[in-house]
Design a protein around this nucleic acid. Structure first.
Lengths: 162, 162
DNA sequence: CTATATGCAAAACGTTTGCATCCCT
DNA sequence: AGGGATGCAAACGTTTTGCATATAG
């Protein structure tokens, strides 16, 4: 896991290398996206938009979209579609990989890592004549105990599957 | 796997049980959806719309959406979101379960079953204090040989991950 | 006869784009 | 100066909805 400063450095390097420009908006969005205070939150574009607006009210929605796409291209962020139908983003931490479990009671998003599943996915792909390029896996589960996640009640309806 | 007639019977039963009506449109859509000729095709709403229109040109788009939702509620269909961003549907065959592998070269959708992955998913959920209710898993792979799927060229751009 | 379904067109939703303007380099 | 970036609003593709009409039970 790396911090805000490292993220900004990587961003700058990517921009330089590609003849793109370092703007206040890009830096602000990156700073907010990597702010440890909001880590682990899988923010949607709207989440980020609101936080960014907070610091600079004249940033437009489109800039958030464009910058997020930029971060993805730069290898700094990963999109993922969990239960609801918004794209959420999370920092791309090199060497780390996890998938998600979504609580059907409250929509909380938890992360897990299971190397044995990853290995089996590769072997399934291979067996079918493909080279695994990527995968998407989301588990939906009902909590054993009444849900105690802090998000509970905040994001009430998470629809499994679709 | 069950055939058109069984699907229609199940539909009728579900409608009866819920005070809903058996209409020509619902029967037609169900018949087309379960037509063996189109099995294994993971049709999108548009795919179905076109096939339905073929038989009855005055069926509206909304009816397709509403009926598909009905089939899902009746346990006859399952929605799944593969690479592109349309919802696709496939027959829900009780006792059978599979996940998907999408060819990044041509968008072909292949099915696979891997019980060891399913078992691990359950154990992951359990370990985290959840009861696995559902899951979603899509693998994206590049074909070893130049892609020979019949679909090739038909659905050219399949975007991994998002 | 009454409640449910349909078809249409309009609205909604998340996301993208065209364009005039702005601002890094 | 000049090309990339921004903000706005309009366009987009998919899905949903309101409403008047049609139809099943």
């Amino acid at each position: 896991m790396f911090d805000v400063d490292e993220a900004l450095e990587r961003l700058t390097r990517y921009l330089d290398d590609n003849g793109l420009k370092s703007t206040a908006q890009r830096r602000l969005i990156t700073r907010i996206f990597f702010d440890p205070k909001h880590r682990q939150e899988h923010p949607s574009v709207e989440d980020l938009y609101l936080r960014v607006r907070d610091q600079d009210p004249k940033v437009g929605y489109a800039t958030i979209y464009r910058t997020l796409k930029l971060l993805v291209d730069a290898g700094l962020a990963n999109p993922s579609r969990l239960g609801d139908n918004q794209t959420r983003y999370e920092p791309d931490v090199p060497g780390e990989h996890h998938d998600h479990l979504v609580c059907t009671a409250c929509g909380a998003i938890l992360e897990f890592e299971e190397d044995r599943i990853e290995a089996l996915q590769e072997s399934v792909a291979k067996r079918m004549g493909f080279n695994l390029a990527n995968h998407r896996m989301v588990l939906y589960g009902e909590p054993d105990d009444p849900c105690t996640a802090p998000q509970c009640e905040r994001r009430p309806s998470t629809s499994p599957q679709p």
